[in-house]
Amino acid sequence: MMNLKGKSALVTGGGTGIGRAVSLALADRGAAVAVNYSRSRAEAEETVREIVERGGRAIAVRADVSIDAEVREMAAAAAEALGGLDILVNNASITRHIALDDLEAAEDEVWDTLFAVNVKGMFYCARAAAPFLKRSGQGAIVNVGSIAGSTGLGSSLPYAVSKSAVHGLTRSLARALAPDIRVSCAAPGAVETRWWAGREERMRQLAGHLPLQRITTPEEVAELVVTLIGLESMTGQVVTLDGGQTM
């Protein structure tokens, strides 16, 4: 198991789903973790409690990642509380469920809201964290994308396009921040999170059509994120974890 003792990490959307799994995985390897939340305060605080109960160190920090001023305050607060920042996991993301061919339903508000969080939010977080990550000497950013960004299929057309933008953002940031900070992207397929609440039968049907006939777990995505953090020769790459769906 990778040893991250002495390292500190900020995980956006860190209290639920993939973000929670990433927060726990980083803490289990010795990192101090700032668990970001926007609305899921109870879940973030529960994640912090679990980390502390396991003998780790963590804090919960609120910020809406689509608001630059809040992001800058969050990064500074996390760095101060944890003694710096070595790792940023850009996980916070939202979607809207709209049939792909319903172009009229993809209104301006949907585009603006999804891009504000999913794309600009990740950029804001990277920009705010960059000065702290550079000081660490081995800074790493992992963005959480999606196979929707490669296939064009997803919960909505704006969501798929936003994730394609995340993949592009990863490559651009990798160039902009090299050699001080490595930037990679984990692109999962279907993941068993609360997103599937009320859609469990659809999830089971999808699993049956995948080559590996299983849906990816948040813990598996967290393992990929941790692996990307540890690979010192990797930057600018988008790595897929989807049960063989896109091969």
Results as ranks from 00 to 15, higher is better:
Gly56Leu: 07
Leu173Phe: 13
Gly13Tyr: 01
Leu231Gln: 13
Asp102Ile: 07
Asp101Asn: 09
Val119Tyr: 03
Gly236His: 12
Gly6Ile: 08
Ser38Asn: 11
Glu223Trp: 09
Arg54Lys: 11
Ala44Leu: 01
Thr193Pro: 01
Val161Gln: 09
Leu153Phe: 11
Ala32Leu: 06
Ala130Lys: 12
Glu107Cys: 02
Pro179Arg: 05
Ile18Thr: 03
Ser172Tyr: 13
Ser184His: 13
Val110Gly: 12
Gly244Ile: 01
Ala75Asn: 09
Gly17Asp: 03
Arg57Ala: 05
Lys134Cys: 09
Ala187Gln: 08
Val166Glu: 14
Leu212Lys: 08
Leu157Lys: 12
Ala69Asn: 10
Val238Trp: 12
Ala69Glu: 15
Gly208Trp: 09
Tyr124Val: 02
Glu192His: 05
Gln237Ser: 15
Val226Ser: 02
Ser8Lys: 10
Arg39Phe: 03
Leu10Trp: 10
Ser146Leu: 01
Val239Met: 06
Asp28Cys: 04
Val61Leu: 07
Glu223Asp: 14
Ala106Met: 12
Gly145Met: 03
Ile87Gly: 04
Ala186Gly: 07
Ala128Thr: 06
Gly236Cys: 13
Val71His: 13
Ala69Trp: 07
Ala105Asn: 11
Glu80Ser: 14
Tyr37Ile: 00
Met2Cys: 01
Thr95Met: 03
Leu88Asp: 02
Gln245His: 11
Val183Lys: 04
Asp242Asn: 12
Gly189Thr: 02
Arg199Ser: 14
Gly121Met: 02
Ala21Asp: 03
Thr217Trp: 00
Ile98Arg: 09
Arg204Lys: 14
Gly13His: 00
Lys120Ala: 14
Asn36Arg: 06
Ala106Val: 14
Lys7Ile: 05
Gly15Pro: 02
Ala75Ile: 06
Arg20Trp: 00
Arg57Thr: 08
Arg20Thr: 12
Asn118Thr: 04
Arg57Gly: 00
Met2Phe: 15
Asp112His: 08
Ala126Phe: 15
Glu46Ser: 10
Val166Met: 05
Val52Met: 08
Ala174Met: 07
Glu220Phe: 06
Met234Asn: 08
Asp64Leu: 06
Gly208Lys: 07
Glu232Lys: 11
Asn91Leu: 02
Ala78Tyr: 06
Leu206Met: 07
Val142Phe: 08
Leu103Glu: 06
Ile67Val: 14
Val71Asn: 13
Ala31Asp: 04
Val52Cys: 11
Val48Tyr: 09
Gly15Val: 08
Arg49Gln: 14
Glu201Asp: 14
Val89Glu: 00
Val166Leu: 05
Glu80Val: 06
Ile181Ala: 13
Thr113Met: 11
Ala60Trp: 02
Val226Asp: 01
Lys163Asp: 05
Ser38Pro: 05
Ile215Trp: 08
Ala178Ser: 15
Phe132Met: 10
Ile94Leu: 02
Ala207Pro: 12
Val22Tyr: 04
Gly243Ser: 05
Glu219Met: 00
Ala165Gly: 11
Ala140Ile: 07
Gly30Phe: 15
